[in-house]
Design a protein around this nucleic acid. Structure first.
Length: 324
DNA sequence: AACTTCCGCAACCGCATACCT
DNA sequence: GAGGTATGCGGTTGCGGAAGT
């Protein structure tokens, strides 16, 4: 694969080089040294690894030449740092890591290398890709910018607790699906509010099932729980004084937001289900009043969010049911 | 089975900063 | 201090495989 794609890459990303003011000279220089671009071959990897094992890192341009690699120093450095380094960690991000990324990104924005320093074995490139491909996708689904306060609040009060609570999520999947389906059958237009809230729950849970929950990530859920203890998915609910319909909606969000996760061991399931249920009952017992947020701005956002669900055409309900 | 679309990720680029002479 | 080179960073591109039709 390497050979063919290299050619095309020279015409693609490499084409930008030729737009430089001294592109002619540049190309001549490249041809002279037969600089390679595109994916690295196994031989090249071995050469680089062996050379660094013998001589150490640094001085990348001279390293590339001395090792006999027809690559720029930059390319060698990138390959080593992002892929060949022995301590580089590959594979899906654990729940802990996801939480950390979300948290650090709210603090520092796109300071990928700074964020990467706090995730041992992860590279800035990997984190950046993760953010762009997964997190931004969800921002798009929420109809807001990934850098907006609105989205960050959604992360903090919906997503993070969602990750923390993954075990409970798994436990309630079947129950939630059944409840939602049953409700769908018996719902009328009067229940639109509740259904829309349910839709929001799906938005923040099952839509993320594709990428945010991996089998291995569940093992770390408990550790992450400590970080965000006290923040629960139910916190985003606005339990209005309107009555039973809204209470159902509140419960629906709590239930369906648990998403599509594999099941934990039985005893764990029961324990978590019980505590979550107790919390919900307490919440509903407090009903008839707005849920109180310490952060007034957040409270406003929550209100806006729940209203927006109805007015901003997030997803058609039909789509939600299809997913469920 | 063939084709198209979508998505994840490796690798690239330009720019900024640090370091050296 | 000026100029040149190396390194680091963040944004972007496009390939290849998966998913959908």
């Amino acid at each position: 694969m390497a050979a063919s794609s290299q050619r095309s890459r020279c015409g693609g990303a490499g084409g930008a080089v030729e737009q430089d003011e001294d592109h002619g000279e540049h190309r001549q220089e490249e041809e002279q040294h037969e600089l390679r671009r595109g994916p690295w071959t196994v031989d090249e990897d071995l050469t680089l690894v062996n050379y660094i094992a013998d001589h150490g890192e640094g001085r990348w341009n001279s390293l590339a030449r001395a090792a006999g690699l027809k690559r720029t120093g930059k390319s060698c450095r990138l390959r080593w740092l992002n892929y060949l380094r022995p301590d580089v960690k590959r594979g899906n991000f654990t729940a802990d890591e996801q939480l950390l990324i979300l948290d650090l990104h709210t603090r520092w924005g796109n300071r990928w290398s700074k964020i990467a320093q706090h995730l041992p074995g992860r590279t800035d490139n990997e984190i950046k890709n993760y953010w762009r491909t997964r997190v931004q996708k969800h921002a798009k689904q929420l109809n807001c910018d990934a850098n907006s306060k609105r989205f960050k609040d959604a992360m903090r009060y919906l997503w993070m607790p969602h990750l923390v609570d993954t075990d409970a999520h798994r436990a309630r999947l079947l129950h939630a699906t059944a409840a939602a389906a049953a409700h769908h059958h018996h719902s009328s237009s009067a229940d639109l509010h509740a259904a829309a809230l349910s839709a929001a729950a799906v938005l923040t849970s099952s839509s993320s099932a594709d990428s945010f929950a991996t089998a291995e990530s569940y093992d770390d859920g408990a550790g992450a729980a400590g970080l965000y203890a006290g923040v629960h998915a139910g916190d985003m609910l606005v339990v209005d004084g309107a009555g039973a319909g809204d209470c159902w909606a509140a419960a629906a969000v709590q239930e369906t937001s648990q998403g599509m996760w594999p099941s934990p061991p039985e005893d764990q399931q029961q324990q978590q289900h019980q505590s979550a249920a107790a919390a919900r009952h307490q919440q509903l017992a407090d009903g008839g009043h707005h849920h109180q947020f310490q952060d007034a701005e957040l409270s406003g956002w929550v209100q806006g969010f729940s209203e927006g669900i109805i007015t901003e055409n997030f997803w058609a309900l039909e789509d939600i049911w299809k997913i469920q």
